[in-house]
Amino acid sequence: MIRQTTTFNPVAIMLADATRHPLRVLLFLLVIGSAVGVILSAHMNRQVIIANEQLMQEKDRLDIEWRHLLLEQGALTEHNRIESLVKRDLDMRRPTPDDEIVVRLK
């Protein structure tokens, strides 16, 4: 009995299969590429959503600050407050009719 010794080379077998079925190899590579594309687009979508949420939180914080500044401006510009500050700090008063001088232009 003659024994035939053959070596088992998996790389050679895979290359032989790949050359016999190039369409299957191309389809396999396209499926792998498509899967990578889906993964990358999902990751980018998540990153955009996270950035959008952070910007919305910043917008809300700025809106609240704006409302507080409007309230503060309204309180600081009330006529009663300004009149009392002028009387107290600058010792100003309303002019009397005797203090008024009328200037006429020709």
Rank of each mutant, 00 (worst) to 15 (best):
R3F: 02
T5R: 09
F8W: 10
F8G: 01
I13R: 11
M14C: 12
M14Q: 12
D17Q: 14
R20S: 05
H21I: 08
H21T: 13
P22L: 05
P22T: 04
P22R: 06
L23H: 09
V25K: 13
V25E: 07
L27S: 02
F28R: 05
F28A: 04
F28C: 00
L29R: 10
L30F: 03
L30G: 01
G33T: 12
A35C: 09
A35D: 04
G37A: 15
V38I: 14
V38N: 03
I39V: 14
L40Y: 12
S41C: 08
A42S: 11
H43S: 06
M44K: 13
M44D: 05
R46M: 09
Q47C: 12
Q47K: 15
V48H: 08
I49Y: 02
I49N: 06
Q54F: 00
E58P: 00
K59I: 07
K59S: 06
D60W: 04
R61Q: 12
R61M: 07
R61C: 02
I64R: 07
I64V: 05
I64Q: 04
E65A: 14
W66H: 15
W66R: 15
H68E: 13
L69K: 13
L70T: 05
L71P: 00
Q73N: 07
L76E: 11
T77G: 03
T77M: 05
N80K: 15
N80H: 11
N80S: 14
E83A: 15
E83H: 14
S84V: 14
V86F: 07
V86M: 09
V86C: 05
K87M: 10
D89T: 11
L90E: 02
D91L: 10
R93N: 04
T96G: 06
T96Q: 02
D99E: 15
E100N: 13
I101W: 06
V102Y: 09
V103K: 02
R104S: 06
R104M: 02
K106I: 00
K106F: 03
K106G: 07
